[in-house]
Design a protein around this nucleic acid. Sequence first.
DNA 1: ATTGACAAACCGTCCAGACGGTATCTTAAT
DNA 2: ATTAAGATACCGTCTGGACGGTTTGTCAAT
Lengths: 186, 186
Amino acid sequence: MSIAHHRRKQPELVRQQLLEVAARLSLEQGAAGVTLDAVSQAAGVSKGGLLHHFPNKMALLNGLFDDLTEKLDRAIEEEMRNDPVAHGRFTRAYLSVVFALEEDADAQRWQVLTIALLSELQLRERWRLWVADHADEFVGTDSSPGCLLARFAADGLWLADILKSHDVDQPMRQAMRAQLVALSLQ
Amino acid sequence: MSIAHHRRKQPELVRQQLLEVAARLSLEQGAAGVTLDAVSQAAGVSKGGLLHHFPNKMALLNGLFDDLTEKLDRAIEEEMRNDPVAHGRFTRAYLSVVFALEEDADAQRWQVLTIALLSELQLRERWRLWVADHADEFVGTDSSPGCLLARFAADGLWLADILKSHDVDQPMRQAMRAQLVALSLQ
DNA sequence: ATTGACAAACCGTCCAGACGGTATCTTAAT
DNA sequence: ATTAAGATACCGTCTGGACGGTTTGTCAAT
């Protein structure tokens, strides 16, 4: 911050703002709403300015993806640090994060974005890699059928939250979570 | 067929062909690949011809959605007819259909389409309605936490199949299915 | 003769990206 | 401490193409 004080241009803030706005637009207007014009204008930057930070649209989308997975990874690591049991540790952390998503208002913005990102071929592949890498990293502790099933169920719940298709009340949610945690231990 | 025989133009076939091609394009090129130009050209029809069958693009997407849910409903009904146990009957039928998806080569084409459809705001709402309607219809038999959980897990597996993120081998798949069926009964 | 099923040309809009330019910041030599 | 030199962070405009949709034309079947 000491630097920021005598620094009038703060490119990192602009970059963050652009990502923020892009995520918000995808939430409010769907994937089609994320155009260079719309993003730059809503972020109070010219299109040239946007393209300075992200040389093309794909770079912007990749930036969103990076931001998303980074946050996800941090949240998961945080949860894993507080779990003494090795077996299914990653799965339980994953469960925690997914179950927390609905309550975190900030996180909601990212949920719909995920769907939008998944509809892009290249980003779908990146997502695949993310999953594969994590499955690989925790193959020793989290590859039992129970763990896999628990994570699948979490994904299903996450999808339902996005679509608001079911509304699961809080007691039911907690009951489900308990059952999935039990699965992760078996 | 008797009509088609002495009829050179077969509008119903063209319509089917258009939907087929649109689904294929979304699989091969992502949602962005489904343009009126691309669909009509790949279907061997002029753009005017396409717009004769579907007055605008949304109508085409709605047509895809209708086709998809129709097939889904038929498959589910078929499965439900062969299940003597009332409790969780819908959930088990849902499981059967989802687990069968990966084997059915024809069905694969529709999987990615689903994601593409979900990225469209209006179609997401239609999907929400479909889910809500079915949850409502079978509220007496399929609203237990076990059933809900089983369906969530099926959705997660379906997502994993689409992304090819995990490759679950056949024995594991069957074990998971058995476990989910058990959940649907509890 | 009318109509349904297309084809072909065309229109207006939107959008990704290029480009030329300007303001601001950093570095380092003086 | 000043300042020249270059890098970085933007801005505003333009363009070529894509895309959704319209209009008009054609032709076979009824």
